[in-house]
Amino acid sequence: MSSKQAIDLKKTAIDWLGIAPFLLFAVMFLIAPTLYLVTGAFVNPAGEFTFDNVAGLFTDKILASYWISIKISLASSIGGAFIGFFLAWAVVLGGLPSWIRSSLLTFSGVASNFAGVPLAFAFLATLGRTGLVTMLLRDWFGINLYASGFNLLSFIGLTLTYMYFQIPLMVLIITPALDGLKKEWREAAEILGATNTQYWTKVAMPILFPSILGTTLLLFANAFGAIATAYSLTGSTFNIVPIQLYAQIRGDVLHNPNLGYALALGMIVITGISNLIYIWLRMRAERWQK
């Protein structure tokens, strides 16, 4: 080996040594734990390869918990995306005073991070049995929420609660996309005789659609993995997947550790797919934001 090659080799070694701590961290605390669960999902307690655990997910109880999780995540992400989009539209293109825009964006930064246990407390104080809104509706309008079948500890209640952090997240991500709509595009459309509806359906929406759909998927994954809010609202009575996994980790309620791994694998697959599509859609959307 010539001395130049040796120097090159040494240089490459140093280059890689520089990110070795990071790679070690990633392997130990991200990749290995995930791989352990993923491989565990495909073996039986004796260590032999099997599809039984994954097949075991397709029982009524587990399917029901996946279904309720997906329903809540879908409802809160679509609802959050819808309302968040109109809020962002209002402050970007609605011609409102500029202080509204900056206060909405600041507030969204706070509220999108205001999740977990305190959020559950806030909604219990608002829409719980003795919550302010529940009591005001009863005293002022004679509407008894809970007699009419509403329950905070249910699908609709949890969806409303999740939307408290979903809407701000949508606002934060979609505002730059709306900012990216160039005035020239609108002017060009108008000069060519397009109506407002035509401009939105033929020009703006096709450009915005990847961003909107992608962000909705991100919100979906965000809701799907969340546990703290639901757990402290409903205890372990409400069987969404993270709560079931929590119970499984605590005390092997499924009586099969490997089925627990399969439960985790199911979560990774669902959040993974929605995030991958989000990243792909964002790359498409960024073509227009240059």
């Binding site: 996994l245 929590y246 980790i249």
Partner: peptide, 9 residues
């Protein structure tokens, strides 16, 4: 990857 899955690992 949801936090609960990471800590499970």
């Amino acid at each position: 990857i949801p936090a609960i899955v990471i800590v499970f690992g």
